[in-house]
Nucleic acid binder design. Structure first.
Length: 772
DNA sequence: GTCCAACAAGTTTTT
DNA sequence: CTTGTTGGAC
């Protein structure tokens, strides 16, 4: 026990040893939040306040759940068995698997990932002859997910205009179709689970009683449905509610765009009458100047719960700020600095280059590649999302639940079996007519198409029959062969990588059955064997005895069903970790939760960061600022910020002024770095004319001529150039984007960032040149 | 049924 | 500029 609590600072200790009541822990960046969470669990158990099975810990990502479990196992000598640690989706999946009848789902229901969901919606629109110009599939998908995140079914959505009414109607049709196919999307997993508990009193009370302590990580990222789910699960409003221990940081809320509601933190404080609010403000990650920058920046946000990070580490180095002329030069400068860092002994994987949007990575990657510096870009295609892996999974899905139309369509003609669009259309008509799945409609088909489709069904059925007694890895192996996919890719020129990925699936299955406790040789198809001896019997609403959904998964699902869930819920790593010690490149979003010795925040320009589209959203700028806050607080020892005067974006050169965030940072913590050569800016700057002739390959034309006129106009008067930074009395700092007219008529289009784009008469407007 | 050309769109992301 | 999607031609 002493071991457990020793080394905690006073706030951490207070949080860990709070009484069994609801509590809100405001955990700043790098304040030891995961440590508090895991130590709290260990402390609760070691002091005998609760057994492992009375604890539920909820996270957003599998990574966080895994991390928590690992650290807990290191802390606790005893087994964590019976403890529920997982993502919202993972836990809901487990509950729905156990109580599938009560949730009105087939035992082998399958989970649609976003891709599957979108293709299903497209199919739905086509089947109902809906104009997808007027009702885009993506919009409908957003509408449906949004409604579900609010806990609303199709009949409950507010419809204030004809378009919304149509969307709501399609939402209903979509849900019907999902039910027919026995599939659920991600949001449905949560909503269905919520409804199950809401409507089934015995089940609800059972779990409410069981989980006396519920701990939630990254609480600021919860959406409304997740909050409602937690409320219900914790028995809020009942006689004996459980203790909800919420850990979060309102300043790091960066997922509003996907439904996260920071307001849940205040709501939680209010709804649960939280008396225990503890702020963890001691930072163990960054040096002083870095924290000063973070603190001052975020103080510009209104509506904060309020928090200031402090450190014992000393001030450290100032934040280095670099202004580049172009994105290429920005990249080159970063590479030079990276080389210096590496020479000074910084490990490559302790250096991160962050950017606001993925499009920015290309130029930097290119420069890194040219310099021969190994790097790793986050956020590529994940393993289970690759086409060939998804195809293999589709065969497995059909074996477990043949009514999954998405899976059916994905592989019915892959590899090619001569089943074309016409045959598929006929099959879809038949399925609609008889109200059955595509698979079930195959017997109604006649002629050549009927024969071919029958052949496909036969592959599925006979494989299922042959693999009756086989283990999951063996089943995967046989399926890869029987589907003809290996053969197909073997004949393809560049199919070798794909074959390797498919082979890996056997390995993934092996690893999965071992880790989940199924045993290597458990028949993949067989139902849960341990069911009888696991968990506590619960009586459901119909008075029927069912089992408590206790860990591990092996108790409630067949290995195959479990593996398919796993494939949907955990997309796997992006690309194999090639080159261990590599520089890390990622968006600011994906950097959340990580830390590095040295961090570059790049592209700090108005329109990019803060992003231009944030201006349109409510609280959009505040969220951009939080994003910047997250970026800054990733750095341990050294932080760089860069911006450029011009940047190539979508095939066009854009001229932006530096980010407004620079004005919100403490001057004394910034070190502005002058370009190496004073004349560099002008030397590298293309004039408007140069630019035009360059683009046109030197062959003069009207455009080049026009551009030349402009530059001449600029050459007259005070000699303004496109791309130049100026200062205006009223509008502040801006960049000349374009110049029109000549002589006294010359007007300039100037991007003032905050104040927007202005057209100013050069002979009237009082402009001053800025900087070098 | 496959392939290629034309076209459109283009923050952020996990489950 | 790039990437993905779609439609038409063979």
């Amino acid at each position: 026990m002493q071991n457990l609590l020793h080394n905690l600072n006073p706030e951490q200790l207070a949080a860990v040893t709070l009484p069994a009541q609801s509590a809100l822990i405001l955990a700043g960046a790098g304040s030891g939040k995961t440590r508090v969470l895991t130590t709290r669990i260990a402390w609760l158990i070691q002091t005998g306040q609760i057994g492992p099975s009375g604890i539920m810990a909820v996270t957003f990502t599998n990574k966080a759940a895994k991390e928590m479990l690992t650290r807990l196992s290191a802390m606790l000598p005893m087994s964590t068995r019976g403890m529920w640690i997982g993502t919202f989706h993972g836990l809901c999946n487990r509950l729905l698997r156990t109580h599938y009848r009560d949730a009105a789902l087939p035992q082998t229901f399958q989970i649609l990932d976003s891709q599957d969901q979108l293709s299903m919606i497209k199919r739905l629109l086509k089947a109902n002859n809906i104009d997808d110009e007027k009702y885009p599939a993506k919009d409908l998908m957003y509408f449906i997910n949004n409604a579900k995140d609010q806990g609303l079914r199709s009949g409950e959505v507010e419809t204030y205009d004809p378009i919304t009414r149509k969307f709501a109607e399609l939402y209903g049709l979509y849900d019907d179709q999902c039910q027919k196919e026995g599939v659920v999307d991600f949001a449905e997993l949560l909503l269905r689970c919520y409804e199950l508990l809401l409507r089934n009193q015995p089940l609800r009370e059972h779990y409410q009683t069981r989980f006396q302590h519920i701990l939630v990580d990254e609480f600021q990222d919860t959406n409304n449905l997740q909050y409602a789910w937690l409320k219900l699960m914790s028995g809020h409003g009942t006689g004996r509610p459980s203790a909800l221990f919420a850990v979060g940081d309102d300043d790091q809320s960066i997922y509003a765009f996907r439904g996260a509601n920071v307001g849940n933190m205040q709501a939680f404080e209010r709804d649960f009458r939280v008396e225990n609010l503890i702020k963890l403000e001691q930072n163990y990650r960054s040096h002083g100047h870095i924290l000063d920058a973070a603190n001052l920046l975020i103080s510009n946000n209104a509506k904060r719960l309020g928090k200031n990070l402090r450190t014992d580490a000393g001030q450290g180095e100032q934040v280095r700020v670099y202004e580049a002329s172009t994105d290429l030069e920005e990249a080159q400068w970063i590479i030079d600095e990276v080389k210096n860092l590496i020479n000074d002994g910084t490990k490559r994987d302790e250096i991160a280059v962050l950017y606001r949007s993925n499009a920015q990575s290309r130029v930097i990657e290119h420069a890194l590649f040219a310099a021969g510096i190994p790097y790793h870009v986050y956020g590529g295609l994940r393993y289970f999302q690759r086409a060939e892996v998804k195809n293999a999974i589709a065969y497995l899905q059909l074996m477990d639940n043949p009514h999954n139309d998405s899976a059916f369509l994905r592989v019915v003609n892959f590899p090619a079996r001569g089943i074309g669009a016409r045959s598929i259309e006929q099959l879809q008509d038949a399925a609609r007519m008889y109200g059955v799945s595509l698979y079930a409609a195959v017997p109604y088909m006649t002629g050549r198409a009927g024969g071919l489709l029958g052949g496909f069904v036969k592959i599925i059925e006979s494989t299922r029959f042959e693999t009756q007694q086989l283990s999951l890895p063996e089943l995967v192996r046989v399926t890869l062969d029987a589907s003809g996919m290996l053969q197909h890719y073997a004949n393809e020129k560049e199919g070798q990588d794909r074959i390797e990925n498919l082979e890996q699936l056997v390995g993934a299955a092996t690893q999965f059955v071992q880790e989940e406790g199924f045993g290597l040789s458990a028949p993949a198809h067989l139902g849960p064997q341990a069911l009888a001896q696991a968990g506590t019997p619960v009586v459901n609403a119909d008075g029927i005895e069912v089992m408590d959904a206790d860990a591990p998964l092996a108790t409630v699902m067949s290995p195959l069903s479990a593996f398919l869930s796993h494939a949907s819920l955990e997309a796997g790593d992006a690309q194999a970790q090639a080159g261990q010690d590599a520089l890390q490149m990622m968006t600011v979003h994906s950097a959340k939760g990580l830390e590095f010795d040295a961090v570059f925040i790049t592209g700090l320009e108005e329109g990019l960061f803060p992003h231009e589209s944030s201006a349109r959203e409510n609280d959009g700028l505040d969220e951009e600022r939080r994003l910047m806050y997250v970026a800054i607080t990733r750095a341990k020892k050294r932080l760089y910020m860069t911006f450029t005067q011009s940047r190539m974006l979508h095939g066009q050169t854009r001229y932006n002024i530096k980010s407004r965030f620079f004005e919100e940072l403490p001057e004394e913590s910034l070190k502005w770095i002058t370009p190496r050569v004073q004349s560099h800016w002008f030397a590298n700057k293309k004039t408007a004319w140069d630019d035009a002739s360059f683009r046109e390959g030197g062959t003069d034309n009207a455009l080049a001529k026009q551009m030349k006129t402009k530059s001449l106009a600029a050459a007259g008067g005070p000699g303004w150039r496109i791309g130049e930074s100026v200062m205006h009395g009223k509008f502040g700092e801006g960049v000349i984007v374009n110049i029109e007219g000549s002589g006294t008529n010359a007007r300039a289009q100037i991007n003032f960032g905050k104040s927007g784009m202005k057209m100013l008469d050069l002979s009237i407007a009082k402009l001053e040149r800025v900087g070098r």
